[in-house]
Design a protein around this nucleic acid. Sequence first.
DNA 1: GAAACCTTGACACAACCGTGGTAAGGTTCC
DNA 2: GGAACCTTACCACGGTTGTGTCAAGGTTTC
Lengths: 125, 125
Amino acid sequence: MNALTIQEAAQTTDWSPRMLRYIERAGLIEPQRSEAGYRLYGPAELQRLRTLRELATRFDIGLAEIGFAQRLRGDDELAGAVDAWLEAQPRRPEDVPPAEWLRWEQDKHTKLLALARATPATTHA
Amino acid sequence: MNALTIQEAAQTTDWSPRMLRYIERAGLIEPQRSEAGYRLYGPAELQRLRTLRELATRFDIGLAEIGFAQRLRGDDELAGAVDAWLEAQPRRPEDVPPAEWLRWEQDKHTKLLALARATPATTHA
DNA sequence: GAAACCTTGACACAACCGTGGTAAGGTTCC
DNA sequence: GGAACCTTACCACGGTTGTGTCAAGGTTTC
């Protein structure tokens, strides 16, 4: 039925078979397998392969970066930590009126401390 | 007053001066400069440098990845595009009951189309 | 049972990441 | 005015990304 082998899928999506395997190893698109282990790409996978190319070329980002975004959305702790760190960036205290300044500092520390408390060691709580 | 030169900052944050310059070029932490062009690290920068190390080692992520997260939060269009793509991932249609299936598909396409409309070429609208 | 596909694994290679070093030159401090 | 710092700009080097090719072996199809 409508499931393509790797070579066919490569042709209709403008990737190479090699890259399809690579994309799979990167954890981005994992097709079903036949009993013998052959990759089978369905319509959904094909569509995602095409939009993946779009995404990567339009914004000039790599598969690794998309993989990182995927990891970000799957790992709340990581997402929180990164977010907290970035939160403390945009403007330096000198650029902010003193009234806001205190709240900014406190806010930042609240977030970072919450993170630290939530993750005592290296793995989850 | 309490602004450290690159070498002092490196010592108290356990980075090397080389890496402090690299981190700056990565757009992660950009210290003020003296009139002569010397980097001046204030308390906020020092704190951020220490937490940056924590973040990177704890989750085993690179500076480039943190830089990408920063880019994500600064570029709504990019964030939307990545999010829309990832949205269509977690479960394949076959694993979802048909009732939800339609909404899932439609939802995904709505997001992707919204993105496509919002960004006709390669740059912003 | 041979052709045409598929699988994993390896070698290769340019480009970048994370680091270190070193050189050539300006600043600060005593 | 020399010591000790700073700046930028390069060379280097192991590791990862993205990509191709090739080999050794299993599957499908006629």
